[in-house]
Structure formats: C-alpha cells, structure tokens
Write a protein that binds this DNA or RNA. Sequence first.
DNA 1: CAGCACCATAGAAAATCATCTATGACTGTA
DNA 2: TACAGTCATAGATGATTTTCTATGGTGCTG
Lengths: 323, 323
Amino acid sequence: MVLAMKVRQLTFRLLQVYADVVRTGSLTATANRLHLTQPTVSQQLKRLREIVGEPIVSHEEGRLVPTEVGQALYQLSQDLLSRADVFNQYLEEYNRGGRGHFSIGLVNTAQYVLPRLLGPFGQANPQVDVTVEIGNRQQMLNRFERHEDDIYVFSHPPIDDDVLAAPFLSNPLVVVGPQHCRWASVEGLNMDALKEERFLLREPGSATRHTFDAWLYNAGIELRSTQQIASNEAIRLAVASNMGLAVLSRHVVADSPNGVQELPLQGFPLKSRWHFVVRRQRRLPPAAIRFLSYVQGSLAQAFDEPEGEMAVAELLQALEAER
Amino acid sequence: MVLAMKVRQLTFRLLQVYADVVRTGSLTATANRLHLTQPTVSQQLKRLREIVGEPIVSHEEGRLVPTEVGQALYQLSQDLLSRADVFNQYLEEYNRGGRGHFSIGLVNTAQYVLPRLLGPFGQANPQVDVTVEIGNRQQMLNRFERHEDDIYVFSHPPIDDDVLAAPFLSNPLVVVGPQHCRWASVEGLNMDALKEERFLLREPGSATRHTFDAWLYNAGIELRSTQQIASNEAIRLAVASNMGLAVLSRHVVADSPNGVQELPLQGFPLKSRWHFVVRRQRRLPPAAIRFLSYVQGSLAQAFDEPEGEMAVAELLQALEAER
DNA sequence: CAGCACCATAGAAAATCATCTATGACTGTA
DNA sequence: TACAGTCATAGATGATTTTCTATGGTGCTG
C-alpha cells in the first residue's frame, strides 16, 4: 500500500462541494446551491473519491449517504473548512487594522506625549500589539536607516524623497529653573542674564540639544558652564535640586512640574513640532494605518491641534496613493 | 473589501510547500527537499501570496521569515496538514481492516457458534465495529436479497452466480430427547420407533426445519404429532420439560445440555454445513475481509475444521480476484 | 570587484481542472 | 408502462496549475 490519500491534489473547493453534497444528500441540490450544473458536481465528487481512494458516498433509497469513510471525510471537511474560515476572519480583522502589530520609534522626548495617543488607541484596539522603541534622535535615525520600525516620531524628520512626515503636535522648548528661582519673576529676561548659569543639557545626539545649540549659535551665545545628562527626567530632577537651568520640552514639565518652573526667557519657547515619519515605500501594517487614522481623528480634541489632523490626513492620503 | 482569502483555490500542496519554506527559511532548500526547482517553489509561494492577498514572507538578513500574516498562515498549514494526516492514518487503518465496520447476518442456529469467532476477533480488533443480524433462514434471505449485510451465514446458501459460499463448519443435526428419555439407550433406534412421539419443530422458514422435512420426505415418513416453536432455545427447554423430541443443531445442545440428550437415531446426525456467504459484486469493507482472514486462520484450531479454512481461503481469493 | 548563493521573472509546454451541454441509465410513482 | 427526477458518462473547451529552463538582480565574501 502506497499512500492512502493523494493529499497534494486535495483542494478546499472539493471539500466545500463535498460537504454540501453530504448536507443536502443530493447532487442536483448542491449544484443549484453552488450555481453549478449537476454533472459538474458529479465529476467533482468522482475526483474527490479518486483522491481519497475509497468510495465516499453510496445511494440509499434515492438519497446520497456518505459511506463510513465518507463520514470521516465529511468531518474532516467541516473541520478544515471551519479552520480556514477562522483564519479568514483573522485576515479580515488584520486588514481592518483591528488586529496585528506595528512598531513605532520615538525620540526620547516624545515619550511624554505619545502615551496619550497610544493609550486610548490600545484601549480601543486590544488586539493590536504595539512595540514602542525609544531612543535619542541619533539612535532613532539609525533605526530609521535600517527600516526597523513602521512609524517614527521626530521633531526634525530626516530629509529624503522616500520620507513622508506629518507635523502633528507642537513641541515648545522652554527654559526651566528650580521652583524658587530668582529669574522667574524678572521681566524681559534674556539670555545674556543667564550666561553665567550652569545649563544642564541633553547629549549631542538628542533633538532638544540640537535645537537649542542651533538657537545659541544663531544668537551668537556661548554658554559658560554646561553639564550633559542623557535623560529628560534626570535633568528635571537635577534642575529641581538647584543644579542648574535646562531647556526641555514643555511636555516634559507640563504634567508634573514638581520642583521646576518655566522661566519667561525672551525668544522662548523655541518652536518645534513633532512629526510622524514614515517611508513612502514601506507598506505599513493595517494596524499602523489604523493608529494614524485614530490619531488623525483625535488630535483636535486631545491636544487642540487641528492642523495636526490635517497633516496626518495628508500623510494617510499619500500612503494610500503609494499602494 | 471582498473576501480576504480565495479559499477555493487553496491547495494542500501549496500549504505543504509553504510550510517547508517556513521551516527551512530558504526556497532553494525546499526545492531540493521536495524535488522541485527553485523557480517552482518561488512561483508557488507567489501564488499562495495571491490567494491569501497579503505578503507572507519577507527577506531578513538572507533568510526568508514569515510576516505576521505568514506566521498565522504557517500555523494554519501545520494544523490543516496534521489533520489531513490523521485522516490519512485513519484511512490506512481502515484499509488494513483494523478499523471500521461490517455487518454479518446469521441464521438463527449459527448464533450458537459465531460468537466463538467474533469474540476473539473483536478482542484482537477493538476498533472494528460488527453488527450482527439474526433471523431465520427466510428472514436472512430477505436481507440477502436487499443487500443489507456484508456477510451471511447460511447452512444452505442461495444459489446465484453472484454468490460466493464457503462451507466453514459442520452443523450436525441431531435428535434430542429429555434427560431420562427411554430411547436414549435403545440400540439401532430408528425413526419408525419414534413415529408416535410428538416432535417440536422450528418454523417452516428455518433451515433446521427445512433439512429435517427433506429428510422425512426422502425417508417417506410422516410425523403423527408436531408442535411448532420459533426458537431453538425454547425448543430445548420444552424438550427438557418432556414436551416431546426435537431435531436441533448439535451446537445448540453441545455447550450446556442441561436437561436434554442426543438420541442415537439411525441416519443421524444429519449432515449439513454452515457457509459464509458473500456477493461477488459487493466490495466488502476491509474489516469484513479481515474478519474472514482471521476466521481462515483460526478454524482448524478453534473447531478442528481444516477443510473450512481451505474453503474460506478460496472465498477470499475469489473476492480478491473480483476487484 | 569577481564569484557565489539566492531569489524573482519570463517564457513555454504539458497536465489538470472546472465547467458546460447532451445523453444515457436507473428508480420509483402515477 | 410511461414519466419525472436523479445520477453517471462522454465530449469539448477555456482557464489554471505545475513544472521546467534560461536569465537577470542583489547582496555577501574573499
């Protein structure tokens, strides 16, 4: 005995037809139901019998009844078809974006804001699994170069034809000092006055540092004393402990300004905006699309940034067009 | 969105190939393993992707890695293939006769003997499900006409070109009387002496009755007093209760002769034999074949009937040839 | 940068499939 | 027995599949 059944030739179509024949007990009925002719069904059945290598139905009093093997085959058919169907449902849900996975790469500072979008999105889409990568600007650029994530958030998107960027949220950089800082109440405070202060700065790879550096350069100012700390949070604590002043995203201090306050420095806040950044060429997982759509529909309400909605809508359109 | 996946076109072959690709992570490797060329595999994969409607693999550092959808598809493949495999194993077992069902129709008297074959067979083949039908000769003939069972046991098989019959066991008919019957010790006892006795007879449809009637007819004897009882067991009890004599298969009284004894009537026992009867044209379930094979191998030992083995062997050969 | 290992695509031929129409065979009922 | 309903078979046809060879692109690796 070789192989009992020629599995390789087995088609789901055949199983579908067979299952219906068993259910109706009639070739003609199945033919009608499936919009085929009776001989077609007859032939399909014959072929299935050949594949199985055994008779699968027999005529009993004008009805087609599955043989013993036929019964087992019917069960198999039901089983396989329903499993295929489950997969199908998964696929549909996946395509709808309600299920699946995507990854988003955040520049450090953005982690103070994105949870406010990712959180509700995750609530609404519990089957979606989001990987959040966090790093400073340089690290994110590296990941971006290697196409490691689906979406990135930068305040200064890399420039490339392949890049689509949607500025969705303003990211004002402010100068902060300790709670009872003497500068807090100075009118018309300017940088010259602060030149002697020690500034706690993020590392050079970070966007905040980069923006501040650029501003200093333009203003022709050189700081006397600086200290480098690679974490917004650590910087905030250090400021609160009177170790110096710092330039931080207002979002970093907005939620819980314990121990620090924004200083009314002229020219500040420095304006910058976060962008959603994706590659044109990359086909985003439907879940990522769904996230962006979600964001697009909630920015105005959540952050009062209607222009952000516009930008994200444009990005989505561009992605759509890219397909 | 129409249908997520074109299920109808899905083939097990495609799933087999795909599963192997995922396992090896290489088209070339799969091509070799499945004795195909690399472009073939490549194309199959492409087709599968079209059926699913989503990319299913992606290149990662020189390896083919399933995408998220691909992973789900791989699981599906494994699942479906292994289920098909289980069915395959069932099929093989079914073909081997170690699993499945058959029905056997027994003439009443044979029920005293067949358990001695069916019992051990059932022990050895617990997955085989046997339906035993029992009736008198006429009832069994009706079933036989309607092709209702796979195997029959008759002492006088119906004659037909379509019929294959193997005499497998002698069925001696003996005259029995009550335990302390006065005829028991009579030398050279003959029928004339018993003419005045009442005879308890099976109903006309039965084979035992038929055989005895024929013998009486040949011997030119007419019985004075008879009573008809449609059950061997009831007849035996009646005989034990001194209600008369009877002709029964020796097998009926052999096991537990409580209350009755065989009478040494000249010309007795009448010789007859049970036959396995099958129709040439009917394809027996493998389990039925296996039963006959089993019988063929155990008659000599169980009943000391080596000729029966021969006859059954011939029947099996004839069936084989019929295919 | 030449070579190698791998994958994708094109092109082609043979096999198989999915269907249809037409027709024959069987079965049970009027 | 004739009719109606149901299934099987034959023959035909276009679509799809399977599979090959040849060839081109890409990305490591020495």
